[in-house]
């Protein structure tokens, strides 16, 4: 009885402490987040041009979206990036990080910097560099393909190849993720590596059976933020292709942006945003559940 009381008191104290620690977030939520989020939810049921007053229209923004060909095209393109671009980028980022972290390799410090610097370039400049890289006749990628006797496609001006070009760019800017993977790798205890070495496990087996499983919380983080990033992806396609050719690079947020700021359809854009919220949340919950990444191992 006494013991039980003590436990419940400790539980209460822990709960109180927990709320105290997250208090800044609660305040921030109340001050800066709830109002804009609630507003956007309300707008999503309105005809709202920003300049005029919002007028309530019920579900019509939502139903109209599913009749909108550009919207459907943007969903398809975004799905393509999530299903193909995100796994490829994650694969590359994880392996580069594991290589970089390998204790046997010396002089990899400068390489960490190399992989990170692409994220430092201002977006406009990065886009300029990529237009150059992707040039059909003299661009870097096609020049290199040319060495192997392959005639490269028109990349950004090609309906088929524009999205792969953006995946390449996505890989190029994975430095942020590499940093996080590297930090995550510091959590993998060296003794585990030693044990694996004694068992005679090679580098790749060690990585596959020890490193990657232990890296799961970090992978989950990066995949989730990457998916959100794809949903919100806008500046690069806006600057480089404006969604063209023929809507091949019309991504979700690019169309959302056009509706919100260029076509005066803030209500419509808000409905788009809320569909995105629901879909992204569903994907994320599935990731959390199916891979059980969420559960701390010992809590």
């Amino acid at each position: 009885m006494n013991n039980k009381n003590k436990t419940s008191r400790m539980r209460k104290a822990e709960a109180r402490n927990g709320l105290l620690f997250i208090l800044p977030w609660i305040i921030g939520l109340a001050l800066f987040t709830i109002y804009p989020i609630a507003s956007s939810l309300y707008y999503s049921f309105c005809n709202y041009s920003v300049i005029g007053k919002p007028t309530f229209v019920g579900w019509s923004n939502y139903t109209n979206l599913f009749k909108d060909k550009t919207f459907l095209a943007s969903c398809k393109n975004t799905l393509y990036m999530i299903c193909i671009g995100v796994p490829i980028t994650t694969f590359v980022a994880v392996w580069i990080s594991i290589f970089l972290d390998s204790k046997k390799l010396k002089h990899t410090g400068w390489m960490r910097v190399v992989f990170f610097i692409p994220t430092l370039v201002p977006t406009v400049v990065a886009c300029l560099l990529w237009i150059w890289v992707m040039q059909p006749d003299t661009g870097l990628v096609n020049t290199i393909l040319g060495y192997f006797g392959i005639q490269g496609p028109g990349w950004l001006s090609s309906v088929k190849w524009a999205k792969p070009a953006f995946i390449l760019m996505m890989i190029w800017t994975c430095g942020n993720q590499i940093i996080i993977y590297l930090a995550g790798l510091q959590d993998v205890p060296a003794t585990l590596y030693d044990a694996a070495a004694i068992d005679g496990a090679g580098f790749f087996r060690t990585a596959n059976s020890i490193t990657i499983p232990l890296l799961r919380p970090t992978i989950l983080y990066n995949v989730v933020t990457l998916i959100i990033g794809v949903f919100q992806w806008f500046a690069e396609p806006y600057i480089m292709t404006e969604g063209g050719p023929s809507n091949a690079t019309m991504f979700y947020s690019l169309y959302l942006y056009q509706n919100a700021f260029q076509f005066f359809k803030m209500g419509y854009a808000s409905a788009q945003a809320w569909i995105m919220l629901l879909v992204a949340m569903a994907i994320i919950l599935v990731l959390f559940k199916v891979f059980k990444f969420n559960q701390p191992e010992d809590q």
Binding site: S253, L256, A260, M266, A269, L277, A280
Partner: peptide, 10 residues
């Protein structure tokens, strides 16, 4: 998840 485009104005 909500993009800034719809929260900017409020």
């Amino acid at each position: 998840i909500l993009p800034y485009q719809v929260t900017l104005i409020p």
